[in-house]
Amino acid sequence: MAELRHIPVMLDEAVEGLAVQAGGRYLDGTFGRGGHARAVLSRLGPGGRLLLMDRDPAAIAAAQAAFAGEPRVSIRHANFSSLAEWDETAAGLDGVLLDLGVSSPQLDEAARGFSFMADAPLDMRMDTSQGESAADFLAHADEREIADVLWQFGEERFSRRIARAIAERRAEAPITRTGELAALVERAVGRREPGKHPATRSFQALRIRVNGELDAVRRGLDAALSRLKPGGRLAVISFHSLEDRIVKQFIRDRSGRVQGSRRGPPVAAKPAELAPVGKAQFPSDAELAANPRARSAVLRVAEKLAVGGAA
């Protein structure tokens, strides 16, 4: 699947959503291999700035190789959730782009352990310089915790059955390979969804747990809002409902809408901080034909409002 390796998802839509100004200051918090970053940089003039972050050391190495000597670019190896801690963002940002989830290079490099398509060490860490691997987690977590992770982060209906199978297997020997885990899940639940490997949800859940992805999204959105200038744009591409739900709720809750239910009195709305820009966007048929990995992508864009609710 090498032909899919470097295709940025919803490239035109995301860059258009940022409304890039030639002299603006923009942050790409998930550099990956730089497809979106290059498109933003191409719209910047000599006075523009592009800040690049990624938690993956391989992505940072690619960024350093691609933009060595480019005076408009600064690069930082860190999770985008800490963007407000970077001095480069203190002057304010005109746009923040977050392309969430696992990147194609991470999936395609078997040794990273994200995919069940090839047998490899069961790692799944986006930042290989720190934290515990998926194998480490499965070695120490109790059966109930494993089941909870599979259910909460993978929406896996057979979470308890799979957790039980994992606990029984590791009593004999540690589970350290992707192929071993995929085969174990398949034996536990069988092939129940045509065209979808039975381990898909389990691998997603473990990856999210190992990398703390949902918490990073929540903290990153708060950090982005704190650094955006009035009129600045936030563009977020999500790849599954758990991420998109967080992004959708974040924008809604900060748009000044009155909160409450039909059964109770309305709750006073907080002052508006964000305004949605259009509706959620999805990949075109042409993009899906060229890049099937874009099939679950959702793009949401919002603009930061000035004090008093006017952009």
Rank of each mutant, 00 (worst) to 15 (best):
A2R: 10
A2L: 10
L11A: 11
D12H: 11
A22N: 05
Y26K: 04
Y26N: 07
L27E: 01
L27V: 11
D28I: 08
R33C: 08
H36G: 04
R49M: 05
L50T: 00
L51K: 05
D54G: 02
A58Q: 14
A58C: 08
R72I: 09
V73M: 08
R76I: 04
F80R: 01
F80W: 04
L83I: 09
A84W: 12
A84C: 08
T89N: 09
L93G: 01
V96W: 01
D99T: 09
G101Q: 11
S103D: 10
S104A: 13
S104H: 02
E109R: 14
F114P: 02
S115V: 02
S115R: 01
F116N: 05
M117A: 13
M117R: 15
A118S: 07
A118F: 12
M126A: 06
S129F: 00
Q130T: 13
G131L: 01
S133A: 12
S133L: 11
D136Y: 05
E143C: 14
D148L: 13
W151F: 14
Q152N: 12
E155G: 09
R161P: 06
I162C: 05
I162W: 06
I166S: 02
A173L: 11
R177W: 07
T178L: 00
G179T: 07
A183D: 15
A183F: 08
V185C: 07
E186L: 05
V189N: 04
E193P: 01
R201M: 13
S202A: 14
F203E: 01
F203R: 01
L206H: 00
L206Q: 04
R207Q: 03
R207D: 06
R209W: 09
V217E: 04
R218W: 08
R219T: 02
L221V: 11
A224R: 03
L225F: 08
K229Q: 11
K229Y: 02
K229P: 01
G232W: 03
S238E: 02
H240F: 10
L242S: 05
E243C: 06
D244L: 06
V247K: 03
I251D: 01
D253P: 00
D253A: 14
S255Q: 12
R257H: 14
Q259V: 12
R262N: 10
R263V: 10
G264A: 13
P265T: 15
A268T: 15
A268V: 15
A269I: 06
K270W: 12
A272V: 11
A272I: 09
E273H: 11
E273L: 15
A275K: 13
A275C: 12
A275M: 12
V277F: 02
V277T: 11
K279T: 15
F282D: 04
P283K: 00
S284M: 12
A286W: 11
L288H: 02
A289V: 12
R293P: 02
S296Q: 12
R300Y: 06
A306L: 13
V307E: 14
G308A: 10
A310Y: 05
A310V: 12
A311R: 15
A311V: 15
